[in-house]
Design a protein around this nucleic acid. Structure first.
Lengths: 184, 184
DNA sequence: ATTGCATATGCACCTGGTTGCATAATGTGC
DNA sequence: GCACATTATGCAACCAGGTGCATATGCAAT
């Protein structure tokens, strides 16, 4: 249950509205923790009630009011408390793994197609991460503080996607009958 | 929403009761997809209503009756249908990643302790997987069919845990101040 | 004798999260 | 002129899943 904390981190970098947070989550942090706008609005309201964030309504010409949320002292305290609290090691829950064990001889073509889809999707996400790495962190050795932390998380994402891609490729190699070898 | 399918796969290997499934999930498949016994009982009942599994009450001396579930034809059909249906690529939702971005200079010691905990937990899980690999798959090159699929999934788990462990170690190297280098 | 554990199932309640829809105003393309 | 996307928030309903507790029983240890 870390959506609260993910939102606090995002708001701490830059204050913003629920709508803006939802858009931000499509990018950066959202690669590692996604959420719908409804859920974000609900959590923001709850955090305001608890005093973790403060809210200021900003009227706009035409468009409905924006509610700009800012992290309060209690929010920072909560982040500090949460970091010290041990959390469960991240656990992978893989649909693809279940599909592999579910497949029988008759469904092997469909399974191979599905593994190929996943391999390509992970390779595509990897490309995006690598692009971000090159664009935002050209000199990683000289990083420190918040930028270093961002870089380390991105490196984690890269590792994970490489792992998925290679795993899928290994499975395709092992599950493709010799007669059909040498296609992509 | 693959708990249904995970249970079908497990029951297809060997018919059993909800209780037995919960215990099995503590081991093998549960490494990649865990669930509490309540959730398993609920899903089993739903699958019985849908005709995916059949249920036979087995009276036992003393202990309450066992309900042995067996995969029905409709259950196998559902698995086949599901394999062909494209599913979302597995997405990592990492609490640790959020913690890293949430940490400020004052909470760095706690963060390093937490990363160390996670590194050790992943290393321990990796050891378990490696043990299973040696014990159950001493000659992987000669595997085929269901055993091969099991092995490929296990290899995926090993990859993931290696990735987590190395990621944690990299972060510790990058986040440990030079003055404190050379401890574990 | 009594505590506690393993077997075996289940209810009631709560939380986290998604989906679908509604609202409200403005600008944009055909 | 009208359909449609964009900005911005929110409700109602639902689904998945977890926690805590209840029940029933036999067996082993203290």
């Amino acid at each position: 249950m870390a959506l609260e904390h993910a939102l606090l981190v995002s708001l701490d970098e830059r204050a913003g509205s629920g709508y803006e947070l939802a858009r931000r989550f499509d990018k950066s942090i959202g690669f590692f923790h996604s959420a719908t706008h409804q859920q974000i609005y609900r959590v923001l309201r709850r955090m305001e009630e608890r005093g973790w964030v403060t809210c200021e309504a900003v009227p706009q010409d035409g468009r409905p009011d924006k509610k700009i949320y800012t992290v309060a002292a209690a929010g920072h305290a909560e982040l500090d408390r949460w970091i010290a609290e041990p959390s469960e090691p991240d656990h992978l829950r893989s649909e693809l793994a279940v599909k592999i064990r579910a497949a029988r001889p008759s469904t092997m073509p469909e399974l191979r197609a599905e593994i190929t889809r996943h391999r390509d999707a992970h390779a595509a996400r990897l490309d995006v991460y690598r692009l971000i790495e090159k664009r935002d962190f050209p000199a990683p050795a000289s990083l420190s503080g918040s930028a270093l932390h961002q870089y380390l998380v991105l490196r984690g994402g890269i590792r994970v996607e490489e792992g998925f891609r290679d795993w899928c490729q290994d499975m395709l190699d092992a599950l493709t009958p010799p007669s059909e070898q040498e296609q992509s």
